[in-house]
Simulated assay, not measured.
Amino acid sequence: MKSVIYLTMCILLASMMSCSSAGKKEKDGTMIVNQDSVTDKGLQCMQRSEAKASFEYKGKRYESLVVRSPDETLPVVTNEQGERYADNRIRLRLTCEGKTVVDKEFTKEDFAGQVDAKFLKHAILEGMVYDKTSSAGILYAASVCYPQTDLYMPLRLTITANGNISIVREELMEDLYEEEKGE
């Protein structure tokens, strides 16, 4: 349960960090913290974001860079109201003492083995953030979500020191609550 809460907080924190640079003050004194843009094609796009992290793993220094960019070349996602959204592409670059361990671009299709196809059809790749290290490897939290809603699938990526990536779907907090309630 603690890991799911921590994962959710990491995703929210990364989302807030990516939005903080987009804040602007309006004439009436209100602050717009996050405002998605709309392209000339009428597509709503999330803001581009960049998250850097430095950490030690097995006695070596690692640098992580995660960049989320809206990508109009990916299939458009349309919600029930007919609103159209550009999906995102996320580039993960992980280096160890100057040597590249991982340099990969992700789309939501990279998570198709962990997310139901029906959900994936109407979802976008929302974000990815460095979480922590463990004996299994370097952990990242990611999420695929319905645009501008609270409906999402939390995912965990584990990267080994030699660059192998494994992806699993995390338990949703509602699922854990139902399991605890049933005990």
Score class of each variant (00 low, 15 high):
residue 20 S to P: 02
residue 22 A to W: 06
residue 22 A to T: 08
residue 23 G to P: 00
residue 23 G to R: 08
residue 23 G to V: 06
residue 26 E to N: 13
residue 29 G to T: 03
residue 30 T to N: 09
residue 34 N to I: 04
residue 35 Q to C: 14
residue 43 L to K: 14
residue 44 Q to R: 13
residue 46 M to R: 15
residue 48 R to T: 09
residue 49 S to F: 00
residue 49 S to N: 02
residue 51 A to S: 09
residue 51 A to Y: 10
residue 53 A to I: 04
residue 53 A to N: 08
residue 55 F to H: 06
residue 58 K to Q: 14
residue 58 K to R: 14
residue 60 K to G: 07
residue 63 E to K: 15
residue 63 E to H: 15
residue 65 L to C: 03
residue 65 L to A: 05
residue 66 V to M: 02
residue 68 R to S: 14
residue 72 E to T: 12
residue 72 E to Y: 07
residue 72 E to Q: 12
residue 73 T to D: 08
residue 73 T to Q: 07
residue 73 T to W: 02
residue 76 V to C: 08
residue 78 T to R: 15
residue 78 T to E: 14
residue 79 N to W: 11
residue 80 E to K: 10
residue 81 Q to K: 11
residue 89 R to D: 12
residue 90 I to E: 01
residue 91 R to C: 10
residue 92 L to K: 01
residue 93 R to C: 12
residue 94 L to K: 09
residue 95 T to G: 08
residue 97 E to F: 11
residue 99 K to P: 03
residue 100 T to N: 05
residue 101 V to I: 14
residue 101 V to C: 04
residue 101 V to A: 03
residue 105 E to C: 11
residue 105 E to Q: 11
residue 110 D to A: 09
residue 111 F to A: 14
residue 111 F to L: 12
residue 112 A to Y: 02
residue 112 A to E: 07
residue 113 G to E: 01
residue 115 V to Y: 15
residue 115 V to L: 13
residue 117 A to Q: 13
residue 119 F to Y: 12
residue 120 L to T: 00
residue 125 L to W: 07
residue 127 G to P: 01
residue 127 G to E: 02
residue 133 T to F: 10
residue 135 S to H: 03
residue 137 G to F: 00
residue 137 G to D: 00
residue 139 L to W: 01
residue 142 A to Q: 06
residue 146 Y to E: 13
residue 147 P to E: 05
